[in-house]
Design a protein around this nucleic acid. Structure first.
Lengths: 365, 365
DNA sequence: GTGAGTTATGCAAACGTGTGAGAAAATCTC
DNA sequence: GAGATTTTCTCACACGTTTGCATAACTCAC
C-alpha cells in the first residue's frame, strides 16, 4: 500500500441538527438528553432517575436497573455542570505552569493528572508564560470555574497567592516555588542537600576549582542550590571564589554564555556545576565548540535528570528530580486539603545523584 | 543570606470558616458571594446586577458603576458553572494526549492553550497513556463536563471518535492522527513530502545505502514517512532494499536497538533516516558506543526538531514540525467549528528541513 | 393634565441536577 | 382487619446565573 491508496474520509464536524421543537419553530441549539427525558420514557419522576443512576438504596433494584438500561440506550451523560451547581463540588482542579513546553514541568503535570484522574478529578491547565499579569488572570478564571484546588509549579510570583487565599478560599499547593518564603503547602526538592552532594562528588574526584553556573539571580532554587554548593566548599576547606560564580537563564543559551565567561578566566575551573540540565546542555555544547573535552579537561554536572540527559555526549552526571512523583505528591496533598484534612505540610523530596560520564578526576597539572 | 536565613511561613491551607448561618446552626460549607448578595447590598434586583456586570446598555451608567464597585469590593467572582448551565456554553475545550510528558505533545498543547486563552477558553487536559480504554473514559468525562470541543493529538485510536460524534455532537479536531483514514477536521504535518525532501538531501550528498529506522509498524505517520522515503529512492533510481528498513518504538531505546541491527548487516547503510528525533537520539548514542563516527562514517537525520536537537553531538539534521503553530491551528479550527462555521477542513502543515552537522557525504570507498 | 415614547429596573422562568420531606403502597404484627 | 413499619416513589425547592417580558419612572409634546 502506501500513501496514495484510497483513504476513508470521516466527517467529524459539528453539523448543528435543525430539530423542530415542540413549539413548532426551528430550534438551532441541540440539547443533550437530560434526566427529565429518561424520566418521561421510564414513566417515573426525575428524582427517581437521579437516585437510580447513583444506585441509591432508596430505589428498588429492578427499577434502578431498568432506568440505567434506558439511560445507557439514550447515550445519557449526566451534566457535571448542573451537578456541580447543586453539590457545590466541581471535581476539578487547576494547574498553572510557566509553560507546559518545559520538560520538567510537563513531567510534573503528568503526575498531577494521573493522580487526579485516579480520583475522579479533571484538571484545567493554563500557561502563565512567567507573566505575573497573566498568572493572575488565569487564577481568576480558575476561580470563576470553581476549581476545588490549585497546583502551581515553578511560580515566580508566589506572593501573589497570598491575597488570593482570602478571596477564593481554595487550597493551593506549590511545587518548587521560586519565590523566597516558604509556603505551608508545597512540594520541594531538597536543593541544598542535593547540590552539596554533587559538589562533594566533584571534590572527591579531586576538583578544587569548581564553578557554579546558576539561573537568573534571586530565584529560590538557584539561591538554595548555590547555598549547597557553597556549604560543601566550606566544609571541605576550599576557598569560595566569587569569580567562579556566573548566572545564566536556566536555558541552554545561558549555559553557553556562562561557559565562555568561565573559560576566559586566567585560571579556569576544572568542573562546572550547572543550575539545571538545560544549562548543562548549553555548557556541553559550548565546551565542544571550544574544543574543550568533557570530562577530560573539565567536568560538568546538571540538575533535573531530564530523560535526554543520558543521551547527551557524554551522558550527563546530574541530580534526578522525581518530577512525576512530585506531581503526584502535590495532587495527593491537595486532595487531602480539599477533603478537609487540615494537613498543612511541606513535603521535601530528595534528589538522587546519578553519576554518568561527564565527571572525572581533573587532569593532573 | 542563604538558606539558613529567617523564612516567612505563609499558610495557604484551606481553613473551612465556621460561619453561623441565618438558621443559627453551624454551617461548615463556605459559599462564595453570589449575585444575590451584591443585589442585597446594592439594594437592587439580581437581574440588575447581572446586567450591570455585563455592562448591558439597559442599565444606567451610574448604577452600573456603583454595582461594579460593590462587586469588586466583595471580591465577587461570577460562577462559570451557573452561567454555563443557563447559557449552555461552558467556554471550555478538552485536550486528550497520549502523554503530556512527550516534548512534541507538550509543545502542541502549549499552542492550543495559548490560542484558547486568547479567546476566553479554558482547557481540560487528560493523558490517555495510549490506552484506548482510558481514552474512552477521558472523553466520557469531557462529555459530562460539556466541553464545547475536543482536540486529540497523536491518537492511535482515531476510529474511536466516530461513534462519539453522534453521541456527543461536539466538534473534534485531530492533530497528527496516527490511525489510518483521514478525518475531515485535522491538522497534519506533510509527512510524505518532508521525508522525501530529507531523503533527497541524503541522496544529493551522495548516499546510496540509506536506511529507514521507523516507529512501530502501522502507525499512520510512520507509514507516510516511509512512503516519502521510498518515493524519493524510486525517483532517484536507487533500488529499495527491505533489509535497510527496521522498526523501533518512536523512543530512544528503539533507536539504539535499530542501529545495532543495521550495522550488523553485511553491507551497513551510510545514512539512517530516523522516524523522529527521539529515535535519532538513541541512534546517535548507540553509534557513539560502537565507535562509529557521525557524520563521517554514517549520516543520521531525525524528524520533529525538538529544542534539544541542536544541542546534540553532533547537532542533528532534522525536519522541523512547527508544533506550537500546529496547536494554534488546531484550536483555531476548533473554535470555527464551535461558532458554527461548517468549515470542515484538513490543514496540511509543511515541515522544514533543518540541516545541521549530523549529515555529510559518505566516506569514499 | 393626558397620552406616547423612552429609560431603568424588577419578576419570574428557565438551565439540569441533587435531596429532604412527605405520600402512597406494600408488608408485617397482633 | 386495623395500625405500625418498611419500602418505593413523588413533590418541591435549591444551586447561581441569564433573559424575555412586564412595569415603573421619567421626559416631552400637545
Amino acid at each position: 500500500m502506501g500513501v496514495s491508496g484510497v483513504k476513508q474520509i470521516y466527517d467529524l464536524g459539528y453539523n448543528p441538527c435543525m430539530q423542530t421543537s415542540a413549539e413548532g419553530d426551528a430550534q438551532p441549539v441541540h440539547r443533550p438528553t437530560s434526566i427529565k427525558d429518561i424520566a418521561r420514557i421510564a414513566n417515573v419522576s426525575s428524582s427517581t432517575v437521579s437516585r437510580a443512576l447513583q444506585s441509591s438504596p432508596l430505589i428498588s433494584r429492578e427499577t434502578a436497573e431498568r432506568i440505567q438500561g434506558i439511560a445507557k440506550q439514550c447515550g445519557y451523560r449526566a451534566s457535571a455542570i448542573a451537578r456541580g451547581l447543586v453539590t457545590q463540588k466541581t471535581k476539578t482542579i487547576g494547574v498553572v505552569v510557566t509553560t507546559i513546553a518545559d520538560p520538567f514541568v510537563s513531567e510534573v503535570v503528568s503526575g498531577i493528572e494521573d493522580y487526579g484522574n485516579e480520583h475522579g478529578y479533571s484538571v484545567f491547565l493554563a500557561n502563565s508564560n512567567a507573566d505575573p499579569e497573566r498568572e493572575a488572570k488565569v487564577v481568576h478564571s480558575f476561580s470563576e470555574r470553581r476549581v476545588e484546588g490549585i497546583v502551581v509549579t515553578s511560580s515566580r510570583v508566589g506572593a501573589l497567592y497570598l491575597p488570593l487565599l482570602s478571596e477564593m478560599r481554595v487550597p493551593i499547593v506549590l511545587v518548587n516555588n521560586q519565590h523566597p518564603g516558604e509556603f505551608v503547602n508545597s512540594v520541594l526538592i531538597e536543593n541544598v542537600k542535593a547540590s552539596a552532594e554533587v559538589t562533594n562528588h566533584l571534590i572527591q574526584l579531586g576538583h578544587r576549582r569548581i564553578a557554579y553556573l546558576g539561573d537568573r539571580f534571586g530565584y529560590q532554587s538557584d539561591v538554595e542550590r548555590f547555598a549547597g554548593y557553597r556549604d560543601a566548599l566550606g566544609r571541605a576547606g576550599i576557598p569560595f571564589l566569587p569569580e567562579l560564580v556566573v548566572h545564566g537563564d536556566g536555558k541552554c543559551e545561558g549555559g553557553m554564555a556562562g561557559v565562555d565567561t568561565l573559560i576566559a578566566l586566567p585560571q579556569p575551573p576544572t568542573a562546572i556545576f550547572c543550575y539545571n540540565d538545560m544549562t548543562a546542555f548549553g555548557a556541553l555544547r559550548q565546551l565542544h565548540l571550544r574544543k574543550i573535552k568533557v570530562p577530560e579537561d573539565i567536568s560538568v554536572v546538571g540538575f533535573d535528570d531530564l530523560f535526554i540527559a543520558s543521551y547527551m555526549q557524554p551522558p550527563l552526571t546530574t541530580l534526578r528530580q522525581p518530577c512525576r512523583l512530585m506531581g503526584r505528591l502535590a495532587m495527593e496533598s491537595l486532595l487531602k486539603l480539599i477533603s478537609g484534612e487540615n494537613s498543612s505540610q511541606v513535603i521535601n523530596v530528595p534528589a538522587e545523584l546519578i553519576v554518568r560520564e561527564s565527571t572525572a578526576p581533573p587532569r593532573a597539572r
